[in-house]
Design a protein around this nucleic acid. Structure first.
Lengths: 221, 221
DNA sequence: TTGTAAAGTGAGCTATTGCTCATGTTATAC
DNA sequence: GTATAACATGAGCAATAGCTCACTTTACAA
């Protein structure tokens, strides 16, 4: 536990040969495996290196410190999630509001199922690495997308403060889905949760009553 | 960092004399101060003892381990929050739905201002102490209250699955308010956020359109 | 007074962990 | 073949933090 306070933060060597690129991959993979299997307490650089089949020294040749490795792992995870949401851009222009929102919610849910165990550990156990550089960019991009979508539909929308609406929507969806993954998997799988949250958000945005579907959708496939 | 894995978990001595009760208070107080002022990284038993003006030995006479101290600190914090919500019981019976919800939101916001710094550290930095015994009871009680409130108003409510509705409401309010404390203090203070979230939730529950207030409330005092 | 239990002390043991560095191995350039 | 740089190794250092325990002090009861 030596240098947790004084981060050397040297921009370490970048892998140039294939061999070293493979090493970096092995390290990141092992990091994820260790986190998932044994939790953050067991996430030591020595252990990760061992599981990766390399020596600690190699690890520190590509990551200046433990947090850098953690940061890289999170960055990759978030990147995966963002890729999953990319396809929504065109749908957002063509489909009706309710559909866009429902798909948004379902996409968010999907994102939580890419690697649920890792996602859970990252968000519950890992100490907040005080505003990661790339993290702010991520949320900003997400917010911007929702904002554009809303602005393109100003006609249907009664909400006054669009910024505030974006804020409420994004936090609500993220929080409800995120918690539901562990606490209400059934309602998430059946679509009941997405159904209700969609109704809530559409009503909120349009200021109109949205009829309750009397026939709840059966659990798909 | 010796016994992090093998928790002795001995039910340590309970304070019997006034002197020792004062010691325990001093320790818990110091724990909060250290957390707030220097973050979780600086939260060491030695440091807490020092700040409390007692020896580490004394600390370990009343807390079997570090996590127990942390747990007690969180328990007290949550207890304070719960006390703040107690007064809502009667209001819930007399006032109109929208009013109850708005006050609920505002109470939740108030709770975050009891000790915002501590609240922030606890929720952002402190590692999840894997399902604290008392924690489940707390959320269960809160959920039960909201549930009762809804059931007493079944007539106004179109929602089919009340359990699911309770879930969505509680998570939404908690998440939106919690995040807004740091990210949108203005909207929280002005009441704009509570206004909008209330409109959203009432629309969700009643299935009716709720008119947007054209005149946004000015920031109170 | 005096015996006993509660309360308090703090030096230091034990274990862990992040990280270094002297050394060895493999690939590329000429 | 040889020089050079990239890559890899792993024993072990330095720091630290959780916790113990032998011992002292204080409170209270008889």
């Amino acid at each position: 536990m030596a240098a947790r306070k004084k981060p050397p933060a040297n921009p370490r060597k970048l892998p140039e040969q294939d061999r070293s690129r493979a090493t970096v991959e092995a390290i990141v993979d092992a990091a994820a495996r260790v986190l998932v299997k044994h939790g953050y307490d067991a996430f030591t650089t020595n252990r990760v290196a061992e599981k990766a089949g390399v020596s600690v020294g190699s690890l520190y040749q590509y990551f200046p410190n433990k947090d850098a490795l953690l940061s890289e792992l999170m960055r990759r995870h978030v990147e995966e999630i963002e890729r999953g949401v990319e396809g929504m851009a065109e749908l957002a222009r063509t489909a009706p509001l309710a559909e866009v929102i429902r798909v948004g919610i379902e996409q968010n849910a999907q994102a939580h199922f890419i690697d649920p165990a890792l996602h859970r550990v990252l968000s519950e156990q890992v100490p907040r690495l005080g505003q990661l550089d790339w993290m702010t960019g991520f949320t900003a991009r997400m917010d911007a997308r929702v904002r554009e979508m809303l602005e393109a539909r100003r006609a249907e929308i009664v909400v006054q403060d669009i910024d505030l609406a974006v804020y409420i929507i994004t936090r609500t969806v993220e929080a409800v889905v995120h918690n539901a993954v562990c606490e209400r998997p059934k309602d998430l799988a059946s679509g009941a949760l997405a159904e209700e949250v969609t109704r809530m958000l559409v009503g909120f945005l349009t200021g109109k009553a949205v009829p309750v579907k009397k026939t709840l959708r059966a659990a798909a496939e």
